[in-house]
């Protein structure tokens, strides 16, 4: 009798998974990593200080010294773009981190406790859902004053229900699966089951939702800055740069608005496609 080799199934390693993945995902991730690195190392990379202007060299086109030209105050657009990446990425990151934390906490606790608490949370989320984020942001600015803080608070509030509703649905299904009950039987407390089993098992959906929400949050935040309610000049921020460049645009030098727009589009597009891929992969796995 021949000895049959037993098939050993091991989880794929990181490299194996990377090889199987689609190239697009890696290109997009690469772009995002590059932009984040630019933001982190802006002081080293930027050829000029972001707020150093030379009014005599205003509204210049691209040249050897100023790769993307200068704005209406003669500041180097490339340097401002690099520094601007910091605030432009920090804002949405904060919003998504806070919103995801609140959303997961709300969704998991409402699913776990159930009953009237679950109903109350669901209605609260529906109510919050009804408020447009931009409107909330304007309200927050009116109360707190312009800057990064007010829009971040407002948009965190606006994005929490967006993520929480999806997480709640998935967690609800997961909570009634038999393995959760067997955890109870083993004697795990509610906290332990939520943290060790429920949250890890809904995390792929959380990741997909958070990624897609990041893109929208970036656009919303840029819009708030564009309206002059967010980050204030002379700080560099992409949304602000779009609005700053408007008058120059009419004077025939589109570089400031254009380059900031392109950055916003590239980041949002990359993040959205990545988010969709993650969601798609979850669907296939389910």
């Amino acid at each position: 009798m021949s000895v049959v080799e037993e098939l050993v199934l091991e989880p794929p390693t990181f490299v194996q998974r990377a090889r199987r993945g689609e190239p697009l995902v890696y290109v997009l991730s690469g772009i995002l990593v590059l932009i984040v690195l630019c933001a982190l190392f802006a002081p080293l990379l930027a050829p000029f200080p972001p707020n150093h202007g030379n009014i005599l060299a205003a509204n210049l086109g691209p040249s050897g010294a100023h790769w993307l030209g200068t704005d209406q105050l003669g500041r180097d657009i490339l340097s401002r773009l690099l520094y601007g990446a910091r605030l432009s990425l920090l804002g949405p990151t904060m919003i998504i981190v806070f919103a995801t934390t609140f959303a997961v906490a709300l969704a998991i606790s409402s699913v776990w406790i159930g009953g009237w608490f679950d109903q109350a949370v669901a209605r609260l989320l529906d109510t919050l859902f009804a408020f447009p984020g931009l409107l909330l942001a304007i309200l927050a600015v009116a109360m707190i004053g312009p800057g990064l803080l007010a829009p971040v608070i407002a948009l965190t509030l606006a994005y929490t229900p967006y993520i929480a509703r999806v997480v709640r649905t998935v967690a609800l299904r997961e909570r009634h699966l038999a393995y959760v009950e067997s955890c109870q039987v083993v004697g795990l407390s509610g906290w332990q089951i939520c943290f060790r089993h429920l949250i890890p098992n809904v995390s792929p959906i959380v990741l997909a939702q958070a990624t897609i929400a990041f893109g929208s949050a970036l656009v919303d935040l840029a819009a708030i800055s564009y309206l002059g309610l967010g980050v204030q000049p002379p700080q560099a921020e992409w949304g602000l740069m779009v609005s700053d460049g408007q008058s120059a645009l009419l004077n025939g030098s589109p570089w400031e608005s254009l380059s900031a727009c392109v950055m916003i589009i590239v980041v949002v597009l990359s993040v959205n496609i990545l988010g969709e891929r993650i969601a798609l992969r979850n669907e296939r796995a389910a």
Binding site: Y179, E181, S182, C183, Q184, V185, V186, N201
Partner: peptide, 17 residues
């Protein structure tokens, strides 16, 4: 639940994360 009693189910696949 931890120490006193243990349970074995009909469908083990469903009861393991």
């Amino acid at each position: 639940r931890r120490k006193g009693v243990a349970m074995i189910y009909q469908d083990p696949r469903a009861h393991i994360n």
